[in-house]
């Protein structure tokens, strides 16, 4: 590969920070629709609305870790994942890859860095070109980037397919000729073919039936050890995240509300939102049991409640919660939580 000079060396101490987010935010402007524009011209008090999809997030992911990112729809998981994968720039804040600010990299180094972080999506079908054969879907990028050669191409593609649990005999087929689980394997083979060391999985098993989901999760775990991968694993499914992750990050309306080692999150959740979320998850062990209830709806991200975003739904909300934003603080070793209750007593 060319121009690797300014990129950080690949050999890094185990456990050193691979991805560091410092005060990362991402805003989207919601453009006015036609009626809104007319109303505005006529003097109505309408304005373009801004969604704080990700709001001032600090997060460190160390080499070899699997960090689970959970939260309900619209809380900013995918947006955070895209920024980490380098396919969407933050509005504010800094992202360090192996200690280096990605904005400071040369063009070539930035390109290589982008290859080294790959993203796997929920709907493999939408992310696979329907008119390309599997062999080309998997082999095109490695060829373009000089990871394989014309002569080594066929063998390289076969190896990638086999590793993802696909029979290379089917490499001349098109995506629609595969089942959902196999398509996800194609997506995985494509991502791994460019030799990444960091993978962002965005709801990668959400669309699959449980039996197929188990197969794909097992594949992710096997590849992690085989290839020494680091994962940011985004999922709304707490059971999946609990099984796979070393550490869990919980988001609510753009903010990280809690972060802790997996065992701690599930045995001693600190943040009232984490507690509510855990209580709401149906568990196969709980028979004919009253479902726990968190009150209220998820507020619109366009107009989140002031102070602590969770206060309208929180059973412990105090006056202070309505006006003052709680900050993430360490509440136990490795456990950070953003809740005013931790200041009391």
């Amino acid at each position: 590969m060319s121009a690797t000079t300014t990129a950080p060396a690949r050999a890094i101490d185990a456990g050193s920070p691979m991805m560091e987010l410092r005060g990362v935010s991402r805003r989207f402007e919601k453009k006015l629709d036609f009626a809104g524009r007319i109303a505005k011209r006529l003097g109505a008090p309408v304005r373009e609305e801004v969604v704080h999809a990700v709001d001032n997030v600090d997060l460190t992911i160390r080499k070899g870790e699997v960090v689970g990112l959970v939260g309900e729809s619209g809380c900013g998981k995918s947006t955070l994942g895209r920024m980490v994968a380098g396919i969407m720039p933050p509005s504010d804040g800094t992202i360090l890859r192996n200690g280096v600010d990605i904005r400071s990299l040369s063009h070539a180094a930035a390109k290589e860095m982008k290859l080294r972080t790959q993203m796997i999506f929920q709907d493999p079908y939408a992310s696979l070109n329907p008119r390309m054969r599997v062999a080309d879907i998997v082999g095109e990028a490695p060829l373009v980037h000089g990871i394989t050669t014309r002569t080594g191409y066929e063998a390289y593609v076969d190896e990638q397919m086999r590793r993802a649990g696909l029979d290379p005999a089917f490499k001349r087929r098109y995506p629609h000729q595969f089942s959902g689980g196999q398509r996800q394997r194609i997506g995985i083979a494509r991502a791994l073919a460019v030799k990444p060391d960091f993978i962002v999985c965005d709801e990668a098993v959400a669309a699959l039936d449980v039996s197929i989901q188990a197969q794909i999760l097992n594949l992710f775990m096997r590849l992690r050890t085989e290839l020494d991968l680091t994962y940011l694993f985004i999922s709304h499914d707490l059971g999946v995240v609990e099984h796979l992750s070393d550490r869990v990050v919980i988001m609510y309306l753009g903010r990280v509300v809690e972060e802790a080692p997996t065992e701690t999150v599930f045995s001693q959740p600190n943040h009232p939102y984490t507690q509510s979320l855990l209580a709401s998850v149906p568990r196969i062990e709980n028979r004919k049991r009253a479902f726990a209830v968190v009150k209220g709806e998820i507020p619109s991200p366009l107009n989140p409640p002031p102070g602590c975003h969770f206060h309208p739904r929180c059973p412990h909300a105090m006056e202070r919660c309505k006006v003052e934003k709680p900050v993430l603080k360490e509440v136990a070793p490795g456990q950070r939580s953003a809740c005013h209750l931790n200041d009391a007593a």
Binding site: V210, S211, A214, Q215, N218, E242, H243, I284
Partner: peptide
């Protein structure tokens, strides 16, 4: 194959 029925981090029992 339900994750919570398996030991954390171990391969999930799967239906082939």
């Amino acid at each position: 194959s339900v994750p919570s029925r398996n030991k954390r981090g171990e391969p999930l029992r799967q239906i082939p």
